[in-house]
């Protein structure tokens, strides 16, 4: 028979590990809360349409990830999407006339935000808004426009 104390400690550890696993599943795997690293600064960008952009999606410059989407909300007067971008603290020199657009990684992939730096000598500071934004491309709209323009051309000659 095992020592009572050792037994109790072993069972205690087991139960704690099981509950910790449940906690991890609830917190990290499902969407209860996001473990965001808040070392850096925040920028704001307003988009006409963000498609299916999600919190935590990458923010990149020239394909290099410089931050993540921190939160997504809506502007109650203009009804535009307000996206807060958490930029890592080492990228402090993003020009003030930088543009932001919502792009898709691959044909069916996840959407992310690409920043296109301008030539301004002034840099964006924490809380600044990115003025130049391009909305997400909605595939259905493009197909719709394409079909519409094809239909306007009239029937093709054989």
């Amino acid at each position: 028979m095992m020592q009572t104390k050792t037994l109790e400690i072993a069972v205690g550890l087991f139960v704690a590990a099981g509950l910790a696993a449940l906690f991890v599943l609830a917190m990290k795997v499902s969407n209860l809360t996001a473990f965001t690293d808040d070392t850096g600064y925040q920028l704001v960008a307003k988009f006409e349409n963000i498609g299916s952009l999600k919190v935590g999606a990458p923010v990149s410059i020239a394909g290099v990830r410089v931050g993540r989407v921190g939160s997504i909300g809506i502007d109650h007067t203009t009804h535009e999407a307000v996206v807060k971008l958490n930029i890592n603290k080492e990228y402090t020199d993003i020009p003030a006339d930088t543009g932001a657009s919502v792009l898709t990684a691959g044909l069916l992939g996840e959407q992310y935000i690409a920043l296109e730096p301008g030539g301004d000598v002034k840099a964006l500071k924490a809380g600044d808004e990115i003025k130049l934004t391009q909305p997400a491309l909605i595939l259905e709209k493009i197909i719709g426009q394409f079909l519409f323009s094809k239909a306007q051309e009239g029937p093709t000659k054989q």
Binding site: L22, L25, A26, S30, N31, A34, K54, V55, G56
Partner: peptide, 24 residues
């Protein structure tokens, strides 16, 4: 695979009640 996409896609698709609770 991108670190943030891995977790953020997971967190946006996995529901606490629908998936985790039913698994339990």
């Amino acid at each position: 695979v991108d670190d943030g996409s891995f977790w953020s896609q997971m967190q946006s698709k996995v529901e606490l009640q629908e998936d985790i609770l039913n698994g339990v």
